[in-house]
């Protein structure tokens, strides 16, 4: 290890710029970030997810997520083959009753699956950063809100901890922080994306199954992706304006 070389290198412009971005302050204070220029969301490419749990661990590290609670988690779906008895009767519809597991939110990955029948896939979940979010609608005091750049945030210095937002989220993305006693949830790594970094879960995903997208950026690859792929959001019947886009989402996912 050539420490001195690296110590010298850290002063070089490239490192300095990267470093400064990390340490930059508030979004409006950092000159190159304007809230009105962004509208954040995320793309989840289900066929790419291998269920390693890197995102869950990274999120916990980045955001000090307490054990047993999750800002993001991964579910493993197993949609069995069409079940029929010997006399030819159908017993259940696997589209309606898939087998789902998420041991400790998938933080340490998943047990090896040996049953080759049916169809398996992993579904990473997190806050959908809905444009018409039911959780911000119900907050009695305005402690949770959609930021001008489309991120659903919690003002933890103002939150009462009434948990009404937890009840209102159709996706189970919120929880009450056990020691802070306020609502807590995915911030889409707001402290990172406002500094030009991607989210911790995207940074840590080894297969690129998660992509932070900026819908207001015309150069964002999401626009091309949406044109060429079959993309769905979770529980579209909830009409939440979810901005968590799933590629190749199976109908059994809820």
């Amino acid at each position: 290890m050539n420490i001195t070389r690296r110590q010298m290198l850290i002063l070089l412009p490239a490192a300095a710029v990267a470093w400064e971005a990390v340490l930059a302050g508030t979004p409006e204070a950092s000159s190159n970030y304007k809230m009105s220029d962004h509208w954040w969301g995320m793309l989840i490419d289900i066929p790419k997810c291998i269920g390693c749990g890197n995102c869950v661990r990274a999120c916990q590290t980045e955001n000090d997520v307490p054990d047993g609670h999750f800002r993001t988690w991964v579910e493993r779906y197993h949609r069995s083959d069409w079940p029929m008895t010997e006399s030819g009767e159908v017993t259940a519809n696997p589209l309606i009753v898939p087998e789902v597991i998420s041991p400790d939110g998938g933080k340490e990955g998943f047990p090896v699956a040996t049953d080759e029948s049916g169809k398996y896939f992993f579904v990473p979940k997190m806050c959908n950063h809905c444009a018409d979010s039911p959780c911000t609608q119900v907050c009695p005091v305005g402690a949770t809100f959609i930021s001008p750049d489309g991120v659903v945030l919690v003002d933890q210095t103002y939150c009462l901890g009434c948990a009404y937002c937890v009840q209102a989220c159709p996706y189970g993305c919120r929880y009450i922080h056990p020691t802070k006693e306020v609502a807590d949830k995915c911030t889409l790594c707001y402290h990172r994306i406002t500094k030009g970094l991607t989210t911790a879960c995207c940074e840590a995903c080894p297969t690129g199954a998660r992509q932070l997208v900026d819908l207001k950026d015309p150069k964002d690859p999401i626009h091309e992706f949406l044109k060429t792929h079959s993309v769905q959001v979770l529980k579209p019947q909830m009409a939440t304006g979810a901005k968590l886009f799933y590629n190749d989402l199976d109908g059994s996912v809820r």
């Binding site: 990390v22 508030t26 003002d155």
Partner: peptide, 9 residues
């Protein structure tokens, strides 16, 4: 928003 954005990465 500024306070949330100021968290260390």
């Amino acid at each position: 928003m500024g306070e949330i954005a100021a968290h260390p990465a």
